[in-house]
Amino acid sequence: MTMLARVADSLYWMARAIERADTYARLLEVSHAMTLESSDANGAGRRTVWEPLVEITGDLEKFLTTHRRADERSVAWFLSFSNANPNSVISCLQRARQNAHAVRDLLPTDVWEALNAVYLDLRSWPAGRISREGVYPFSRQVRRASALLQGLMDQGMRHDASWHFLRMGRYLERAEKTARLLEVKFHLIAPSDPVVMPGADLHQWRSLLRSVGADEAYLQLDIGLGSPREIARFLVVDDRFPRSVAFCLDQVSDAVDALVSGGEMLAGATPIALIAAAREELADETAVPWDGALGVAMDRVQRRCNDIDAAIAASCFAYPSGREGGQQRAQAARQAQN
């Protein structure tokens, strides 16, 4: 039987939510590390680190409605444990768990257990722990859980439609977030000459790489320290690094191809054309502006990602009677199970 539309929807969003939690945990950890050593962590960090961090997540407006200013304490809380922030790590994990719950019959038991365990464990953290111990233990746990989940899915599932929908969600989320990170950071660091590595901002560039776990991989490229342009190229078009925009889009594209050839997605659907278009724009490196204008290109990538997301939803997830509502939940709870 072909996969249920609702099930595909849940798998896709489960993967996106886990990926988002992973991304935000990394960003938090790197930002924290950057401010630790600066003399006035909150004062200087506010402009250079904490506010941009919230901006990367796209939730700055929401943040400012509940917090007066962005500093280590407020941002760390907002991105980790805040229930008011639908994109905090805990909210993402909760959403992932809810989605996993809705498709439990299709997931390996190990996957459910790992997701349930990390969620329950973080939920049991006392409120002050993250400011007491720093974000490292928190971030490490989230990153490890994400890696474990991904490994369990890759090795414990058949690489069938379920797996491809998970893959699609994970990589589309990642492509968008890497593009977003570059957009904000390039605006902030704004290299005057992208071909020369500026000594003053060296640690900024290293942090940028580190926020996507790319610092070590980049240094193995055998190009010395490279330059802002090299770093950007690495994160945008390197087709072997699993967090580059191009790599992620290729994965989404592969997943869609596999679904179409397996009869799990309609051939000729718009997502295919959109992914191809997005990939096309990055194919010619000389056409990509590797200077301050990179932000514009990255903004376009994000919009492409949103269009792809909407097209996938329209093609695969639309199911007859709409989404679950409160009244339906109430009725569901009333059904006697004798």
Binding site: A5, V7, E264, S321
Partner: peptide, 23 residues
């Protein structure tokens, strides 16, 4: 076997179908 909710199913010409990613 698949786990479905009511909203995943439709009846057409007195036959029951489940909505999948393709139809």
């Amino acid at each position: 076997v698949p786990l479905v909710e009511g909203r995943d199913l439709v009846v057409r010409n007195r036959r029951v179908y489940v909505k999948t990613t393709t139809g």
